[in-house]
Computed example of a mutant assay.
Amino acid sequence: MSKELSLQETGALLLAAEKIVLCTHVSPDGDTLGSTLGLARFLLQQGKQVTVFCDDKINDSLGFIPGMELVQRPVAGTKLAADVLVVIDASSFDRIGIVADVVEYKELLNIDHHISNDRFAEYLYLDPKAAAVGEVMVDLFQAMGWSMDKETATCFFTAINTDCGSFRFANTTPKTMRKAADLLECGVEPNFISESLEVRSRKTVELLGKVLPSLTFEAEGRIAYLTITNDLYDADANTDSFVSYPRSIEGVDVAIMFKAVEPAVTRVSMRSSKVDVSQVAVHFGGGGHIRAAGCTIYAPVEEAREQLLAELRKQL
């Protein structure tokens, strides 16, 4: 069981360490990357030895985030000693890939906002009411009196913006808007961030055209899903937004995207307007939020789809 820290205790733990490894979760999104890179920039400015790990491919659309050049992919079989390993925006330890095997750490800190967090870390700062870990980072910096330059603020604004759907999702609160406004005071250009996030490669748009015909409805139209089969899967295409298409259909309570990344590995993304999809994700070892969650099912996509739909029907 984790020891839950205050913001001040979290900041003190970070400042007390010299060798720090920060890591994102696999299938990295704007929140985990923006939050990690913003914190990494600050710690480097304090003279800390900082390594940033991400055990997955990063979509090109996120390449504009300041500090992206710091991100390394861990190499299996290597070892890196650290005073503290900081896991950012991950609710379970398996969400960091082989980073868990590569880093030899003295202390393990998890900074998160997922209600499904399984408290795997020795130390934990968790705010399930926060729209994004980017919002938590702003809280941390303000509580510690740490200054933010334009680039660090851009990292955190990107984190918040992506996890609350450009302030459209139900997790957006008055506090979320206030923290975003604080970041604008640091010189953040929201138009630049929005335009950068909206850019799609030709490969991604062409893949969307091939995937949309797979749209299928279940439970009298309350469930709608898309499927990316093994023959369609392209690691270079940014498919994060695909689930928004079934989500926008009238009468759909739960939208799902099944992505066959390997013959027996299926990644699942779920969005909901009424159903607690985090419970479904947790059943398969994943996690997330009540209205947005995901998991990886180690089965062929057809089998994984049947398993997940069966569990989802129980929630309905």
Results as ranks from 00 to 15, higher is better:
S2V: 03
E4R: 14
L5R: 01
L5I: 01
E9V: 00
T24E: 01
P28D: 09
G30W: 12
T32L: 05
S35N: 05
S35H: 01
R41M: 11
F42Y: 15
V52W: 02
D60R: 14
G63D: 15
M68R: 12
Q72P: 12
R73S: 13
P74F: 04
P74A: 00
P74S: 08
G77S: 10
K79I: 01
L80S: 02
D83Q: 02
L85K: 10
V86N: 09
D94W: 07
I98E: 11
D101M: 01
V102N: 02
V102D: 06
S116T: 15
D118C: 14
D118S: 07
A130T: 08
A132N: 11
V136N: 08
V136E: 02
A143R: 09
S147V: 09
E151Q: 15
T152A: 15
A159V: 05
I160W: 09
C164G: 02
F169I: 00
P174T: 05
E206L: 12
G209E: 03
L215Q: 05
T216F: 02
A224W: 10
A224S: 11
T227W: 03
T227R: 12
T227C: 12
L232T: 06
A235M: 06
A235W: 02
S241R: 14
S244I: 04
V252Y: 02
M257N: 14
A260Q: 15
A264N: 15
T266Q: 08
R267H: 13
M270W: 02
K274N: 13
V282N: 03
F284H: 05
G287H: 13
G287W: 15
G287C: 11
G288M: 11
H289S: 05
A292C: 09
A292I: 02
T296P: 11
A304S: 14
E311K: 15
R313C: 06
R313I: 05
